[in-house]
Amino acid sequence: MALTIQSSFVIAAPPATAWTILTDIERAAPCFPGAQLLGRNDDGSWRASFGVKLGPMNFSFAGKFHLDDVDAASSRVVVKAQGSDTKGRGGAKADVNMRLQPEGAGTRAEIISSVDLSGAVAQFGRGAGMIEALSRQLMDQFAANLQQSIGEIPKTEPESHGPAQAGSLALPSAAAPPAVASLDAGSLMWRALAASVKGWFARLIGRRS
Rank of each mutant, 00 (worst) to 15 (best):
D43A: 00
Q36D: 13
L3G: 04
P15M: 07
F9W: 09
D116Q: 11
Q165N: 14
P163L: 09
V79R: 02
A128Q: 11
L204N: 10
S7K: 10
L22D: 00
S209M: 12
R207Q: 15
S60N: 13
I21S: 04
A72D: 09
G88I: 01
G55V: 08
G83L: 01
A194M: 11
Q147A: 10
G162Y: 15
S74W: 12
S45D: 00
A143I: 04
A175P: 00
W46N: 00
I112G: 08
S45T: 02
N41S: 05
K93Q: 09
M57Y: 13
I112Y: 04
R40C: 01
L22G: 01
R40I: 01
A81D: 00
A181L: 11
G186L: 04
D68A: 15
R76F: 11
I112K: 14
D184L: 06
L171K: 03
A12K: 13
G119W: 02
A109F: 04
S182I: 03
S84R: 11
V79E: 01
G51R: 05
F50N: 06
L169N: 04
Q137D: 14
A16E: 10
D24S: 10
L138R: 11
W19H: 04
G127C: 05
R108Y: 03
D68P: 01
K53A: 13
H161P: 07
A18H: 06
D68Q: 13
A122R: 08
G39R: 02
L100R: 03
R89V: 10
N41H: 07
R89C: 09
M57P: 05
V180R: 07
G125R: 04
L188G: 09
A81M: 01
I112V: 15
L54V: 13
E152F: 09
A2P: 15
M189D: 09
S135G: 08
M189K: 09
G55N: 09
A166T: 12
S173L: 12
V115Q: 01
P14W: 07
G199Q: 14
A120Q: 14
M1R: 11
G90L: 06
L204K: 15
K64T: 14
G125K: 03
D85P: 02
P102S: 04
D85T: 03
L37R: 05
A2E: 15
Q148D: 10
R40M: 08
G104I: 03
S160L: 05
S113T: 12
S187P: 05
L54A: 10
V197L: 14
Q137R: 13
K53W: 07
R76V: 06
V52Y: 06
L38K: 15
R108H: 04
V10M: 05
A143W: 04
V70Y: 12
Q82D: 05
V96K: 03
R99W: 10
L117D: 01
N58K: 15
A2T: 13
R108L: 02
N41Q: 08
P177A: 02
S118F: 02
P163N: 13
